[in-house]
Design a protein around this nucleic acid. Structure first.
Length: 116
DNA sequence: AACCTGACATGAT
DNA sequence: TATCATGCCAGGT
């Protein structure tokens, strides 16, 4: 049982932001991968919400490295300009075509594997 | 203070 | 094989 809650109410968003910050430049990951790493199979959606709230995080969160499972830049419309996300990725040597990351499978960085 | 919305993914019909 | 409905969390109005 759990008479009292954990000392640290570690918010899901906090965890998500932390994991995203661990994604190395030139690499990308997906909402689902992060959710799975955090133990929430159906929490992918929440991960997306976390990204939207990423700008409220204390530290910078490279949200441009997080895509949906198809490698699409789903969050690009949330940036200052619709191209900011793509430009940020290309600046790291990642090729983007038609709002989709080329060689997504190769560049994919799975936290449950890399941080195992 | 309550309700609504919002960067996804999976399983079942 | 494609579509529908469900699961998850926090912030803003």
């Amino acid at each position: 049982m759990k008479p009292d809650a954990p000392a640290e109410p570690r918010n899901f968003f906090q965890d998500v932001h932390e994991v995203v910050r661990l994604v190395p430049p030139g690499r990308v990951t997906s909402y689902g991968a992060i959710a799975h790493y955090l133990g929430a199979r159906h929490g992918a959606r929440t991960v997306g919400y976390a990204m939207m709230a990423a700008h409220t995080a204390d530290q910078y969160v490279p949200a441009h490295r997080v895509l949906n499972r198809l490698g699409h830049l789903t969050g690009r419309l949330h940036y200052a300009t619709p191209f900011a996300m793509q430009e940020a990725l290309e600046a790291e040597g990642i090729r983007v075509e038609e709002d989709r990351v080329v060689d997504f499978a190769k560049l994919f960085w799975d936290p449950s594997v890399e941080l195992a």
